[in-house]
């Protein structure tokens, strides 16, 4: 399920689908990552490619408010996984995401979502304190949220391209990588960046406006119809 080889097929697929379903675009388009299904069409026409969106989730954020896929409907967001007492990579990862956040602090088209993988410890109060200490006062801009269940958090992390495994040798008892995932208005993952690598964090900053322009374009298209 969590494979690294999704990248190339996904890239190839984007090139193909854009070629046959949409007029050629002048601006660069981000690839669609994650799993996809190719379904033969009943009428024998060209097969449809179905991209799997991020599965549905129900989180509670630092303000005690529910956060679901619907919270981000029609908008883009960036996710990562962390825990408040994480002695390993989290501070660096959150510091990277904070850098990106500061480029778009008030743009309503994009928001931020950090999900805890230690829900037993990271209560709403802990998440609130953490967010405030990071300098985030508006929970709607950057949600620090919990699924309430550890196993489910790991599963969602995998869907968002973060590998997590309990590891007694890892600092804090959890080994995980530091992926920042960029999700589009339809819940599809459009980019995955190593939050510990400055160059990739810069790529994320570069890609967000490209995705926002694409979403703006879709909205205009809908408005015209």
């Amino acid at each position: 399920m969590f494979k690294r080889l999704f990248l190339l097929p996904a890239l190839a697929a984007t090139l193909l689908t854009t070629a046959c379903t949409e007029p050629p675009k002048t601006a660069a388009t981000l690839p669609i990552l994650g799993e996809r299904d190719v379904r033969p069409r009943a009428d024998g026409g060209p097969a449809d490619t179905i991209y799997q969106a991020v599965p549905t989730y129900q989180l509670v954020d630092q303000a005690g408010q529910p956060v679901t896929n619907q919270t981000f409907a029609g908008r883009a967001y960036v996710t990562d996984f962390f825990f408040a007492t994480c002695p390993g990579i989290c501070p660096k990862l959150q510091s990277a995401l904070l850098t990106v956040y500061k480029k778009f602090p008030t743009d309503p088209r994009i928001s931020f979502l950090s999900i805890t993988i230690d829900p037993e410890h990271d209560s709403t109060a802990v998440l609130k304190d953490y967010a405030e200490r990071l300098g985030i006062s508006d929970a709607a801009r950057w949600h620090f949220a919990s699924l309430g269940d550890r196993a489910k958090s790991f599963e969602l992390a995998n869907h968002l391209l973060t590998g997590v495994v309990p590891d007694s040798l890892a600092p804090g008892g959890l080994a995980h990588n530091g992926v920042l995932a960029l999700v589009d208005d339809q819940g599809r993952i459009r980019g995955a960046y190593d939050g510990l690598n400055a160059e990739q964090v810069a790529n994320l900053q570069r890609d967000i406006p490209i995705l926002l322009a694409e979403i703006d374009g879709r909205k205009k298209g809908v408005a015209k119809q």
Binding site: P91, Q94, L134
Partner: peptide, 15 residues
């Protein structure tokens, strides 16, 4: 460095 930063700058009010 992962916590205190490359330049010892810390992280907001967390570190």
């Amino acid at each position: 460095a992962s916590c205190h930063g490359d330049q010892g700058q810390g992280l907001e009010r967390l570190i």
